[in-house]
Amino acid sequence: MSMMIDIVSWILLLSGGAFVFIGGIGALRMPNFYTRVHAASLTDSMGTILILAGIMLQAGWSLALIKLLAILVFLLLTCPTASYALANAALLSGLKPDAKTLSPDDKGRPTP
């Protein structure tokens, strides 16, 4: 039984790690600001859920489980909100989500 739990939690941790890794690559390599935010938000949502679920399986029935659950709920509320606020701020400051735009320059303006 504990063997099963270990295997499942390792699968969850590793796939969570993979999501964080993909999110990191995406944040560096994606062509423009909005796609980068989109890639980075992978880390926030799916990576967080999988990694915390993996740790929860390791923690078993204890106080740590409740604390991890609270952290999970907190992150699931705040991280998407932060991504939204970031994208919204960019939109308000005049960065158009246009397919033709490439990466923004230092001043946040889209370069042709």
């Binding site: 907190f74 509320l77 705040t78 606020a85």
Partner: peptide, 15 residues
């Protein structure tokens, strides 16, 4: 005028 941050923020302040 920013509904999402406002709702989530209001939810979080007491906690």
């Amino acid at each position: 005028h920013h509904l999402i941050p406002k709702v989530v923020g209001r939810l979080l302040v007491p906690f």
